[in-house]
Amino acid sequence: MNLTLRIWRQKGPEDKGRMVTYQVDDVSPDMSFLEMLDVLNERLILAGDEPVAFDHDCREGICGACGMVINGNAHGPQKMTTACQLHMRHFADGETIDIEPWRARAFPVVKDLVVNRGSLDKIIAAGGYITAPTGSAPEAHSTPVAKANADAAFESAACIGCGACVAACPNGSGMLFTAAKVTQLSLLPQGQPERFTRVIGMVDAHDEAGFGGCTNAGECTAVCPKGIPLNTIGRLNRDYLKATAKRGDNTPGS
């Protein structure tokens, strides 16, 4: 396959950045999208040019490191698939492909396609944990969990924190990520002690990081490589309403 790539190049956070066109020939349809970028980078290095920077780690679709907007789609055209698991057979020979980084104020560009997703960590730090004592794993059957809750919690826990929901959201909101992290814990007995301080802390951290507000447009769930359902946001909303109604009882020290 021969492809024309239009890639966002930006030297650093202060650089203005621009789309640059590259021609990549002899691409195998069996390559992953990132392998195709590797081929381009090897040729750029041999030609003495700066390679295109992009985030990647496991290349198995489970770490959440990779992510780029491909032809206007976060993680590309294939549903429930990260960019690293996307194969070139989904593109046509001679196609022009636009590749851009996640665009959000909360995700400043570090270089080329690499963005700083530290604001997702700030949301987690604001409440995405439980205060169970560590040590040896407790007997699994000692704390019963209803099957429906276990399944829904597991579904939310599949979130890999890649940030595609933010990249796709017309409002630049990170609510699907926040909701997945909130509901994964609030559905389980271990998550109950901090249930209501957690949701308030995480939503506050979300808003402070400069993410937009959710309008239930549903774009996030359409691009989510892990298929986190939109109704997790409803679970977050319900916890948030309950928490704001009884905030005084739950704030530590009050």
Binding site: R6, W8, G17, M19, V69, N71, G72, N73, D98, E100, R103, A104, R105, A106, V109, P170, N171, G172, S173, G210, F211, G212, G213, A217, G218, E219, A222, V223
Partner: peptide, 16 residues
């Protein structure tokens, strides 16, 4: 929403 995305996408699909 406007403030949350200061740099716009060059290639943006209509909302799905």
């Amino acid at each position: 929403a406007r403030a949350a995305r200061p740099v716009r996408y060059a290639h943006r699909k209509p909302v799905q």
